[in-house]
Design a protein around this nucleic acid. Structure first.
Length: 266
DNA sequence: GCCCAGGAGCATA
DNA sequence: TATGCTCATGGG
């Protein structure tokens, strides 16, 4: 099987970089990941998006906690519902990993109810918190914990993938936005947009091949965590506004390069 | 009432 | 390995 597997010819590095330029030019910086705990504090806007600096966990344990929990809570769920769950967790003082570990699963489930799948997500948060005990970023902001510093980021990724309830998207979200490590996040939006722009409708869903899709971005970009974070956020932004399930192609900024657009009349 | 939203685990063929 | 089912709330 070829490197591209079922995907056929892969988009070139140039195409991937051009796509980023177009999205960034149009939407500007997105400042992901949103962090509710800091909303309305200096330097953060009303939604908790950091201005200029990113809420990387290495510099802010509170942001680290929010990103990690948010990554689980937003699984197959609108961010608004996940955010409401995060706020409720904070209100009930489930605001550290230790408190999650010692909490009753039913109580935690009640707190995260608004995010849906609340029984599963409460379990996931508890399992993840147990594992993260020894894998937290150091307070100095340099390196992570002593245990982690002797591991490569790939090994950290494998460890997190072993946690029940965490798949590649959730793990890479945590690695990128909380640990500030260069792993590109592939989600349903990314698949949809790549499928449409580069593969027309033929393989539009790109259901499998997470690693192949991720490699496309890794080999095309510099490895900057800021670019990875912005790019993923921009893909989400565009898919929410234009490249929706029923796409709004009229006036779409990607019309010029989109194979789906050229293959349809919408 | 239906569709969709920043997935993942598990059973089955 | 591929597909289908399950988990579940909330907004449009």
């Amino acid at each position: 099987m070829s490197e591209s597997g079922q995907l056929g010819r892969l988009p070139t590095a140039r195409q991937i970089r051009d796509l980023y330029e177009i999205l960034f030019e149009h939407y500007g910086p997105q400042g992901w990941w949103p962090v509710v705990s800091r909303a309305c504090e200096p330097g953060y806007d009303a939604r908790g998006y950091h201005r200029g600096l990113y809420p990387r966990g290495r510099e802010d344990m509170s942001a680290f906690f929010d990103v990690v929990c948010g990554a689980v809570l937003t699984q197959n769920t609108a961010w608004k519902n996940a955010e409401a769950a995060l706020i409720e967790m904070r209100r009930r003082r489930f605001d550290t990993f230790e408190k999650i570990i010692s909490a009753r699963t039913e109580d935690l489930a009640e707190a995260v109810r608004s995010s849906g799948y609340y029984n599963q997500k409460a379990k996931k948060l508890k399992f993840l918190s147990e594992v993260l005990r020894n894998l937290l970023p150091s307070s100095s902001g340099r390196g992570i914990s002593e245990e982690l510093s002797i591991e490569s980021s790939e090994i950290l990724r494998e460890r997190l993938l072993d946690v029940w309830g965490l798949g590649p998207e959730t793990v890479d979200s945590i690695l990128l936005y909380a640990y500030d490590l260069p792993f590109f996040v592939i989600d349903a939006y990314t698949r949809r947009l790549l499928g449409r722009v580069f593969y027309s409708t033929g393989i539009s869903e790109l259901r499998r091949g997470y690693d192949v899709l991720q490699k496309i971005f890794h080999r095309s970009l510099s490895g900057s965590t800021v670019i990875y974070g912005e790019y993923h956020a921009l893909l989400v932004r565009h898919c929410k506004e234009s490249c929706t399930v029923r796409p709004h192609c009229i006036g779409c900024i990607l019309n010029k390069q989109c194979l789906f657009y050229h293959g349809s009349d919408t």
